[in-house]
Design a protein around this nucleic acid. Sequence first.
DNA 1: CAAGAACGGCACGTGCCGTGCCGTTACTGT
DNA 2: ACAGTAACGGCACGGCACGTGCCGTTCTTG
Lengths: 192, 192
Amino acid sequence: MTNARRSGPDLTEAIMRTTLELGQELGYAKLSIEAIAARAGVGKHTIYRRWPSKGALLLDSLLSLSESALGYPDTGDLLMDLRTQIYEAVDLLAGPPFSALFKALIGEAQHDPGVAAALNERFIAPQADKTVARLKAARDQDRLSPDFDLDVAMAILSGPLYFRLLITQEPLTHEYVDRILDALFTGLGPRA
Amino acid sequence: MTNARRSGPDLTEAIMRTTLELGQELGYAKLSIEAIAARAGVGKHTIYRRWPSKGALLLDSLLSLSESALGYPDTGDLLMDLRTQIYEAVDLLAGPPFSALFKALIGEAQHDPGVAAALNERFIAPQADKTVARLKAARDQDRLSPDFDLDVAMAILSGPLYFRLLITQEPLTHEYVDRILDALFTGLGPRA
DNA sequence: CAAGAACGGCACGTGCCGTGCCGTTACTGT
DNA sequence: ACAGTAACGGCACGGCACGTGCCGTTCTTG
């Protein structure tokens, strides 16, 4: 008769899975912790014990997807490595089925400092660090000018993508990624 | 004994003013239409009659500030014109006292398509168009290479700024604007 | 000056919040 | 093996803001 009550990490994972599931169905705005608890067959306490807010829960749920997925190759070909890496990230987070939830999460970060900090520490900064490290390796091997500004380069690679994703809300295609990469490395055409 | 009941445009303006006021005090998350109505001495209907949502109300409130403020000079010096324009925009929207509300508005746009569309049509696109137009003028005068990609240039100018504002949440300084402008026009250093 | 729209004030039902309490179940250390 | 404890599901609660009615009053329009 024991109803196979689940425990510990099991539950955590089940809750996160349910969060992504319900989030896709309802959208972030209509997603409620009450509904997640009901769907997951879980008491609300069990959720509140683990996460302080809906945003934190969604953050963990989404990051559990990316943690294993996003590596960073170094084949020696800088441009190709960057392209590979950015394609992966863009496909995972800006494509279906998680694009809307990821955008909502960044939205939540705009008025929840905790979410903002966690998002930075656990996703943005590591990703940026890897990009900068890959650029630095290329510079150290004299494949880039010694005065190449790594941080600005990284911002130019990321900025326009997030601009498209969050502001103009146009689709993030590989073709667009290529245009940014081209602009960064071959320049926008010399001044007359 | 007539209690000087206000009407029409008067009210609209008063509500928007109260929205900005209360928004600064409470932050967007805790800002409620109920509280705005109470503070403004107005029935909730009067607000709902004008705006469909809190986001739409905040959008109008914030845009009423920028509409008159953000011009676009053409002195002939492209770099200086861009710098002037971007400084202005950055100071107005990314500096106190409206930075937090502006960020919250963009956050709202992530799960309210209406707000997203209105934000684009009434603020982002006009601003981008002006930038592109200014760049195009320079290119037409042979101050830029004929194959200078105007749209990508515009994205490289805006993207990193929004990236800083929304993602890494670092302060948007004039110095940072300068670094982006430098990178765009003098390049990041040629490849070895 | 009459008709109607817009107004402020109030009340209502609804949904979700976050918390407290219950009895039950699974883990812990000895 | 077994007691003690922590975590669990379920339920109920007060609180708050939502969005919508209704009322009586005031302003605008023709």
